[in-house]
Amino acid sequence: MENKDKATTGLQVAVTILGKWGASSEQGVAILRVSPETYARARRRDPEWKVNLDEDQLTRISYILNIHAALRVILDNPKNVYGFMSMINHNEYFNGRSPLQIISQGNLYSLRETWLRVTWSAL
């Protein structure tokens, strides 16, 4: 039961962060690799609802939480912490796209690379 609670809480927090980053439901579903129904229930934060997640989904949640943590370290203004992911970025990896556009492709590699780029900025 404890793992389900942690997975559910992690998913709910990741969905909240994605919403603050300006992600649409479709983008969130692709980023976290969950069904639209699971995404919607996580957003509603139904206290009776619990979810089972696989390792890939838990890894995706971890990347979202770690990107958010790195942004909080490098940026003071909450508008920038939450706005960074939807801003056009001219770093060679992002190449004029926003980090949110990159991670919305839904592949784990893009999520990992975005996390690395943000983390390197925090060092």
Score class of each variant (00 low, 15 high):
87 M>W: 13
113 E>D: 07
86 S>P: 01
30 A>M: 04
2 E>S: 14
20 K>I: 08
112 R>Y: 14
96 G>R: 08
76 D>L: 09
44 R>I: 10
73 V>W: 06
95 N>I: 08
118 V>C: 02
53 L>H: 03
101 Q>C: 04
17 I>C: 05
96 G>C: 07
25 S>I: 08
78 P>G: 10
65 L>V: 05
114 T>P: 07
61 I>Q: 00
111 L>W: 11
82 Y>A: 06
67 I>G: 01
83 G>V: 03
41 R>N: 05
102 I>G: 06
123 L>C: 00
96 G>F: 08
34 V>T: 00
51 V>P: 02
20 K>C: 03
90 H>Q: 10
67 I>S: 01
75 L>K: 13
101 Q>D: 15
34 V>Y: 02
77 N>L: 09
63 Y>K: 07
52 N>L: 11
2 E>H: 15
95 N>W: 11
46 D>L: 07
48 E>H: 13
113 E>A: 11
15 V>S: 00
4 K>Y: 12
103 I>S: 05
42 A>T: 10
47 P>L: 09
57 Q>T: 05
95 N>M: 13
108 L>H: 05
65 L>G: 06
61 I>T: 02
34 V>W: 03
73 V>T: 11
66 N>R: 13
67 I>K: 03
11 L>D: 00
93 Y>P: 09
10 G>H: 05
62 S>K: 12
112 R>A: 13
71 L>Y: 06
100 L>T: 06
92 E>S: 13
101 Q>M: 09
89 N>W: 09
61 I>H: 04
86 S>A: 12
45 R>P: 00
98 S>P: 01
100 L>V: 07
50 K>I: 10
103 I>Y: 09
5 D>V: 14
28 G>F: 01
81 V>I: 15
5 D>A: 15
85 M>D: 10
100 L>A: 00
79 K>V: 13
118 V>R: 02
9 T>N: 11
